[in-house]
Design a protein around this nucleic acid. Structure first.
Lengths: 235, 235
DNA sequence: ACCTGAACACCGTTCAAGT
DNA sequence: ACCTGAACACCGTTCAAGT
């Protein structure tokens, strides 16, 4: 009789207890992150979005840190997929393609910069991406040590630059692009107001800064790094 | 009479109200950061250390974010001082010297990576360091645009790499080096356990990873970037 | 000018208990 | 196996009031 009621509940009764899955949890987390950034992703907000209580989250994840790591890694699956065909061309060109794909993903999702590629033990896609980059470097026929250094440098540069650019402006606005332009204009004005004798370099490049595009800036830096790598590889 | 009492209080009576200064606030903040990392720096912990209430902090600083920014920047004064004599030699060598000084500072204080050089509007020393790096790049006789890109690349690489290396391990230990070695050993073991067919690169460099030194790794990457810059400058 | 007291509106995390 | 309820021990920030 108890069994019968049990079955009836399972079959017909409206679920009173919400039930998720790790995929649903991470998808909801990414949704919140996209809307309100890392600051907005609270355990409680996530639980509310999933229709349950905060404690339920801890069944899927050990804590907020792991949640952030896994959410970031889940998004990298898309990047990995985008570059799945890369690997047959010139190694340096392939490296550029992969790095740009990663950068673009972080530009789309500024919160990614701080959590992507942090722990390859836990983050499967981060590890696969690291491997993928490393495999291109391997084709340059360098020593293991040089391979290791080259790969680390590329990853460090991509994540570092992207994280820096993806930072929320001091005023902490998580909205449209009007604010971004305002921020740039404000910073430019501040720079122009500096003493030219004390800040010759800043005055020298302030016009470039005023009109710069993050993507161009990233690519220019990446090309410097890749030029150095090509030089080291002697090809 | 009220004035008289006022004076007496000021002169002779034991102060019941604690009084600080922005310097004292930042010094205390740096102390907490060094001991317990960014997570440990709460407004309340800082107030307690200063012997006052949490609200008093807000007289000196607009909030926790600004506190972190200013604390980080205050530490960069030391770096700036360490490189004050740099600037007369080969531009690329000078750039390396400055970059290594910054890196070393962040290795000493892992929390620095996330807050240094974030907002040159508010962070005076960050701005001066950016200027200093830029001035060396200027000596390479590149276009303003190339100067801007080169300088940004170096800063991005230093901060990015250092921030990545300075991350607290997943287990979040803020203590000695035995833990750091344990962490490295654990990660190495995980890598060795991966399928060699799926992860040829990781297996190719795992021995390097196991014995690597963060500083060497940083310098190797920096040299790639500087080699690219030198190539672009044609000297 | 600079600080206190006290509150407001949150947090992450835990754990016994339920289903 | 997976979730709820309810609590614990915190947070950052504000603001009237004091000195």
């Amino acid at each position: 009789m108890a069994e019968q009621r049990e079955q009836q509940q399972t079959r017909t009764r409206r679920r009173v207890r919400t039930s998720h899955s790790i995929e649903a949890v991470l998808a909801a987390a990414v949704g919140i992150l996209d809307e309100s950034g890392a600051q907005g992703l609270t355990i409680r907000a996530l639980a509310t979005r999933l229709g349950g209580g905060p404690a339920s989250i801890y069944w899927y994840v050990s804590g907020r840190d792991e949640l952030l790591d896994l959410a970031a890694d889940s998004v990298l699956a898309g990047v990995l997929n985008d570059v799945s065909d890369v690997g047959g061309g010139d190694p340096i060109d392939d490296l550029r393609t992969i790095a740009v794909a990663m950068f673009d993903a972080i530009v789309d999702r500024p919160w990614l910069g701080a959590y992507a590629m942090r722990d390859t033990g836990q983050q499967v896609n981060s590890r696969k991406l690291y491997e993928k980059i490393g495999e291109q470097v391997m084709r340059l026929e360098l020593s293991p040590r040089q391979c290791f250094h080259g790969t680390s440098a590329i990853v460090g540069f991509v994540i570092g630059t992207a994280a820096d650019m993806g930072q929320e402006p001091p005023a902490a606005v998580v909205s449209g692009e009007m604010d971004r332009d305002d921020y740039l204009a404000g910073a430019t004005a501040e720079w122009r107001a500096l003493d030219p004798a004390e800040y010759p370099f800043i005055h020298h490049i302030v016009d470039e800064f005023a009109t710069h595009d993050d993507r161009d800036q990233f690519r220019a830096g990446l090309d410097l790094l890749l030029a150095g790598l090509r030089l080291t590889a002697g090809r």
